[in-house]
Amino acid sequence: MALLEVNGIHTYYGNIHALKGVSFEVDTGEIIALIGSNGAGKTTTLRTISGLMTPREGSVNYDGEVISNTRADMLVSKGISMVPEGRGVFAKLTVEENLDMGAYIRRDGAIKEDLKGAFSLFPRLQERRKQVAGTLSGGEQQMLAIARALMSKPRLLLLDEPSMGLAPVLVDGVFETVQRIANEGVTILLVEQNAHMALQIADRGYVLQSGEVAISDTAANLQKNETVKKTYLGID
């Protein structure tokens, strides 16, 4: 059984019909890439899964349970963690305080250990643990946002454009990290503009177009797909 099943969801912003029956599934341990052009509805899909929006039709099942009407904060305790588009770190708190905040829902004593784990994943953050997050560089903020999402010990990590606004060198680093996180057993749903990189680390991928799933296939096949090549990989 899939960890996450999205069944024909329709999500609206007022009258704007943003998702028109999107369906897909994510199995435990997979990296799934969700690609599509601007305004295709990728962010909306993530927001619907994470409980920030409620679909008008269709349902989202997680771990065999319908979660489409569950509040966002409760989903975090169920193991779904999201790194929002544009990072969204707490700008006035220090790096360490941000990470602490990520572990907010946890009451176990292993938080200190995980803090160490986060720092070993991102040594850069360790150097800057007392720095105010708003003064970190864009790439560091992205690292912080991911590290913070991991602090809640998620089973499913939703990443919205982690490579946005980063220098090409850093982009490689981010995808490497995502791969590492997946290797540790976290299931990942990755939304990306950078289809090329996303498909390289993903197991399977879905192409979203105007609020609908246009293509779904394994990552390898998608990389060979003519339409995908032309539209999203920029190869003629």
């Binding site: 920030l52 904060d73 999201m82 990520g102 913070r148 999402a149």
Partner: peptide, 16 residues
């Protein structure tokens, strides 16, 4: 503190 800094992100941290 989380709400004061950013309400949306606070929600994403699992805060009601």
């Amino acid at each position: 503190m989380a709400i004061r800094e950013d309400e949306d992100v606070a929600t994403a941290m699992g805060i009601d």
